[in-house]
Amino acid sequence: MSESISVTPERALAPKRAPDQPPGRRRRTPHVNIHRRREARAAYVFLAPWFIGLFVITVGPILASLYLSFTDYSLLEEAKWVGLGNYTEMFFEDDRFITSLKVTTIYVVVSVPLQLAFALGLALALDRGLRGLSFYRSVYYLPSLLGGSVAIAILWRKIFGTDGLVNGLLSVFGIQGPGWVSDPDTALGTLILLHVWTFGAPMVIFLAGLRQIPQSYYEAAAVDGATKLRQFRSITLPLLTPIIFFNLVLEVIKSFQSFTQSFIVSGGSGGPVDSTLFYTLYLYLKGFKSYEMGYAAAMAWVLLLLIAGLTGVNFLASKYWVFYGDTK
C-alpha cells in the first residue's frame, strides 16, 4: 500500500492519460486476451441487475414514448399516427411551448450556478474545524426535506406573499414590496430562490466529496507553507472537480425537469400568466389535462435531446477541468 501513499496532489492533478485506458501492468502481461475476457465477464456480472432493469423495465416504456411522440394519443383512445405533426406544431404553432422553454432556460441558467455555489460554500463552512458542525449540517439540510412537501406552497407564500416575511422586513425600511409569488415579474425569481434554498442534496454530495480528499495532502501543503487559499485552490478545488462535475451535470438535468415546485406553488397552472410554466409542467398539462399524450411525448423527446446535448457538451468540456484519481 505504501506506493499509493505517495500520490501527491500535483500528480493527481496532471491528466496524463485517458481514464478508460487500463493500467500499465495489464498491458504487459502475455495473456492479454484471457485477462480482458475475464474482466469483461466480471463486468457483465456486476452489471447484471442493471441490464435486466434496463431491458425489462426501462427500455420498453422509453421506446413506447418515442413511438407515441409520432401519434395523436388521448390516453383514452387508441393512438393515431401523425408523423412529425407534434414536432412541427411545437416549434411553429405553440407559443406556450416557446414560453415554457424560455422560463425553464432562465430558471436553469440562474438557479443551478447559484445553488451549487451556495452548496459548496456551506459544505466548506460545515466540513470541519468547529464544534457542533454535525448539528449545523443537519439543520441546514432540513429545508431540503421540506422542498417537495405539499405544505411548501403555503410556506412560500408566508415568505414571499404580499404579507409575507420579506415584505415585513422591507416595510421596516419603508419599502412596500410587491406580492412576489403572484406577480408575473417576480414569481419565477421566488422559485429560483426555492431551488437555491433546497441546496441540501448538492451540499451533502460536496461534503462527502471533501471527505474523499486525503488529509495528508493538506498536511504536506502546510509543511510547504501554503496558505489556506492556496490549499483550497491547489488541493481542494482540483480534487473536488469530479464531484463538482457530477453536481453540475445532475443539477442541469434535474433543473430542466423541475416540476414539483412550480406545480405546487402555482397550483398546477404555471401562473401567474405562465411566468412559472416549466417545461415539464407544460408537458404534464398537455398529457394529463389536455389529453394530448402524443404531444407530451414529443415534448419529452425534445427535452431529452436538449439535455443530452448539454450533458454531452459538459462531458467534452470536463476533459479540460475535471481531474480523476484513477488517471495516474
Binding site: L54, T58, G60, P61, I62, A64, S65, L68, S69, L75, I253, Q257, F259, T280, L283, Y284, G287, F288, M293, A296, A297, A300, W301, L303, L304, I307, A308, T311
Partner: peptide
C-alpha cells in the same frame, strides 16, 4: 435513461 421526464413513460 434519467433524461426523459417520467410523465411520458408512466403509462407504458
Amino acid at each position: 435513461s434519467i433524461m426523459l421526464p417520467h410523465h411520458v413513460t408512466v403509462v407504458p
